[in-house]
């Protein structure tokens, strides 16, 4: 069964239609790239998949492995949506600890490992409000991957990253695919798509077309 299936999804905001009768299937063990111009609805698509917004019509089906009956949002998904979300007065490590405590499946060691894997120093005393844009992006990536989720939804994960970090993240995502996990990401960079994506979807004229 597909991990995520979109069937005849239609979604409008205040008279502007973003999606109309969109169909798509995302299978396990693959990396999917999504491209589209600014404001085309990439973030909205991710929010629809996560259940943060509901479609006007159509259905989003998530593999029951990740969607038990009592959940509104899928389990075992790591996401970056819109922008990094954090408590500015706390350090990066404390922010991640706060999030990790909710599910309580990982401890400090796993958080530190995840931080190091994207190039963040876990023990820095710097509050997140003083982080650079790139560091905030890395923090967002860390919270998405730290609980070793089976599905990653990453909205422009390479934004503001330096060349070395881009390389790190690319390798990380490729390793996720090798472990049979699913990655869906958006990017404006053609190179990211060419190097990583097994399939590419383009958002054009309110629909989602598979181009590769």
């Amino acid at each position: 069964m597909a991990v995520i299936q979109l069937e005849k999804i239609t979604k409008s905001f205040k008279g502007t239609t973003l999606f109309e009768n969109v169909n798509a299937t995302f299978d396990a063990g693959k990396i999917y790239g999504i491209v589209g111009h600014n404001g085309s609805g990439k973030s909205v698509l991710f929010k629809l998949i996560c259940g943060f917004i509901v479609p006007d019509s159509g259905t989003v089906t998530i593999d029951p492995t990740y969607m038990s009956k009592n959940r509104t949002f899928p389990e075992n998904f790591g996401v970056i949506i819109d922008r990094p979300g954090y408590l500015p007065q706390k350090t990066g490590l404390d922010n991640l600890r706060d999030l990790a405590r909710i599910r309580a499946v990982i401890g400090d060691d796993e958080i530190r490992t995840a931080m190091k894997s994207v190039g963040l120093a876990p023990d820095t005393k710097q509050a997140v409000r003083n982080y650079s844009l790139g560091m905030k992006q890395k923090l967002a990536l860390t919270q998405a991957i730290m609980e070793e989720p089976q599905v990653l939804l990453l909205d422009e994960p390479f934004n503001a990253l330096d060349v070395d970090s881009v390389e790190l993240v690319r390798n990380l995502l490729a390793s996720y695919r090798d472990k049979g996990r699913t990655v869906i990401f958006t990017s404006h960079n053609r190179e990211d798509m060419d190097l990583l994506a097994d399939h590419v979807f383009r958002i054009r004229a309110n629909s989602l077309e598979q181009t590769a």
């Binding site: 009592n70 949002f73 899928p74 996401v79 949506i81 819109d82 919270q143």
Partner: peptide, 10 residues
């Protein structure tokens, strides 16, 4: 809240 709500499940 996105990241918090997702982890709580609902």
């Amino acid at each position: 809240i996105y990241y918090v709500a997702l982890r709580h499940g609902s």
